[in-house]
């Protein structure tokens, strides 16, 4: 499903109608770091074209679980994942699945903006290049321009695509990283506290961007800010001590949660 041609998605596409269908499904997921049991029995359905927020106190396992969805945990030698995670009903931990291909389908944005020490253009072109998405230079130009437009950065950088990505401001760098992820046309975008290193104005811009990206992508965001979860997400999952405590509609979660621990966390009684 390549949506790169779509820039404004006010017209509902047929797929948007299927907003509630499951995109990512986790069954009995366990994660171990060496002897430490970091994630216990997590079962969750993540819906297509929805923003799902993972909240919970520090060290509760929300980032660890996020990194299971694109198998980034494979790069950590001591980490072991058990259970079943499937995207579109295909188990991503199946030996047949190439984690490198999977990560093209499941993009990721990190806590600290991490643009490559290259030009703005080269940062965005990096993914399309390694996956051979552009046959001609003009195709690549189009992909880069469209990704930067989707990330709301085009107007700010279109005249200086050759200047280094590391020269941008923090908020611009993070949007550049989002553009970089979007350029590969992933189906799912994972965001690991994408605004924790940004000031409130840059944060507002990124949140607005997440809101727009929801039209085309399934987004999972880890956040420490309850307000942010309430603002950007439709579904919220609460983690505590490696367990998934509760997963619910965001509105319900922040007004009338089912679990006492969720209530306590949201009210600021712990965490």
């Amino acid at each position: 499903m390549n949506m790169s041609g779509m820039t404004t998605a006010i017209t509902p596409t047929p797929k948007v109608a299927a907003m509630n269908e499951t995109k990512v499904s986790a069954r009995d997921v366990q994660v171990y770091y060496g002897d430490k049991h970091a994630i216990r029995d997590v079962n969750i359905e993540i819906r297509s074209r929805t923003v799902t927020a993972f909240i919970g106190p520090s060290g509760c396992g929300k980032s660890t679980f996020l990194r299971c969805i694109n198998r980034m945990n494979d790069t950590i030698a001591s980490c072991r994942v058990e259970g079943n995670i499937s995207i579109d009903s295909e188990n991503i931990y199946d030996p047949k699945v190439d984690p490198v291909q999977l990560r093209a389908k499941v993009g990721m944005v990190f806590q600290k903006p991490n643009p490559f020490p290259k030009s703005i253009f080269e940062n965005v072109a990096y993914g399309p290049r390694i996956h051979g998405l552009a046959a001609k230079k003009s195709d690549l130009d189009d992909i880069v321009a469209s990704a930067l437009q989707k990330a709301g950065l085009w107007n700010e950088v279109k005249d200086r695509l050759d200047s280094p990505g590391t020269g941008l401001s923090g908020g611009q760098q993070q949007r550049l990283c989002i553009a970089r992820a979007v350029a590969v046309s992933p189906e799912v975008i994972l965001m690991d506290e994408p605004c924790s290193a940004l000031d409130p104005i840059a944060t507002a811009k990124v949140e607005e961007l997440i809101h727009e990206l929801r039209e085309n992508f399934t987004i999972v965001i880890v956040t420490h800010s309850m307000q942010q979860a309430a603002r950007v997400s439709q579904r919220t999952a609460m983690f505590h001590l490696g367990n998934l405590v509760e997963e619910n509609d965001t509105d319900k979660m922040f007004t009338n949660p089912d679990d006492q621990r969720t209530q306590d966390y949201i009210m600021g009684r712990f965490g």
Binding site: M72, R103, N114, I130
Partner: peptide, 10 residues
């Protein structure tokens, strides 16, 4: 930087 690159499927 490594994470960023792996995260893009490199």
């Amino acid at each position: 930087l490594r994470d960023g690159s792996y995260g893009l499927g490199a």
